[in-house]
Computed example of a mutant assay.
Amino acid sequence: MTNLVPWRQRLSTGTEDIQGEVIRWYQETRHSKAYLPTMIWGTLQTEAYAGVILRQVVEFLGIPDDVQAGVAKRMERQQVLYDGEHHYDVILGEQALYTNVGGPTVMGGQMERLLRDFDLPSLRLGIVPATAEVGMAPEPGFHMYGDDRVHYELVSSGVDITDAEEIALHNKAFGFLSDAACYGDDAKTLIGKALAFWSGE
């Protein structure tokens, strides 16, 4: 089953309510996966980075401006990284380290945050190098909440997939992405290079 809800409908009261909804998803799911080819995973975003993203959402969609409250909720959601009860397998495209969200200062702080939290027991963070060969056609980013749901964020809508066969294909795709990704010190090196870039070194 696939459920599609337009963002203007889903965010009709602003960004805070949906952040609360996402908190519930994360709290209820012990093991989640996420692939983001061009931006930083929300649960690892700094306050500054998240503020730029949510400001863009508000202005693009013309929804009520509650960016400050939305950012506060996004920061609250990050507590799942530290509670010892959840695990996240996250893959970023190398481009995510260079997509300019808020300028060098924001991006530099974001790279520092990735390096700081890289070794959290709750997190397995991989980076797909820009030149890596992946055994599948390029796909947009997606989030997997356990084995029950896959979530996509499109330009105009959020899409949730709950069909078991489709979820199995997403698990297969995630496996290909994981095989192509760098982990450990190799991934840290890529993040460190991005930090040097944003620091002007």
Score class of each variant (00 low, 15 high):
Gly42Gln: 06
Asn100Met: 06
Gly135Leu: 11
Asp186Lys: 13
Ala194Lys: 04
Gln19Leu: 09
Gly20Asn: 11
Leu97Asn: 02
Gln95Met: 13
Met107Lys: 03
Gln78Asp: 11
Leu169Lys: 10
Val52Asn: 03
Lys193Ala: 15
Gly158Asp: 12
Val67Gly: 06
Met107Thr: 03
Ile167His: 00
Leu97Trp: 01
Gly108Thr: 04
Met75Pro: 12
Gln9Gly: 09
Ala130Gly: 15
Phe118Asn: 10
Phe118Ser: 11
Ile40Gln: 05
Lys172Gln: 14
Leu11Phe: 09
Ile167Val: 08
Arg116Tyr: 09
Trp198Asp: 08
Ser12Met: 02
Met39Leu: 12
Ala96Ser: 11
Glu59Val: 06
Val52Gly: 05
Leu190Arg: 14
Ser32Ala: 15
Thr2Val: 15
Phe60Gly: 08
Ala187Asn: 12
Val155Ile: 13
Pro104Tyr: 04
His170Val: 00
Arg77Glu: 13
Leu11Ala: 10
Leu54Val: 03
Lys172Phe: 11
Asp185Leu: 10
Thr46Gly: 11
Pro138Asp: 02
Trp198Glu: 10
Leu177Arg: 04
Trp25Gly: 05
Glu133Val: 14
Asp17Ser: 12
Ala164Trp: 01
Gly126Pro: 14
Ala130Glu: 14
Phe176Glu: 15
Phe118Leu: 08
Asp160His: 07
Phe118Lys: 07
Met144Glu: 02
Gly20Pro: 12
Glu59Phe: 04
Met75Gly: 10
Thr105Gly: 04
Val58Cys: 08
Glu59Cys: 02
Ile191Phe: 09
Asp147Phe: 00
Glu21Thr: 11
Phe142Trp: 13
Gly84Ile: 03
Arg24Asp: 15
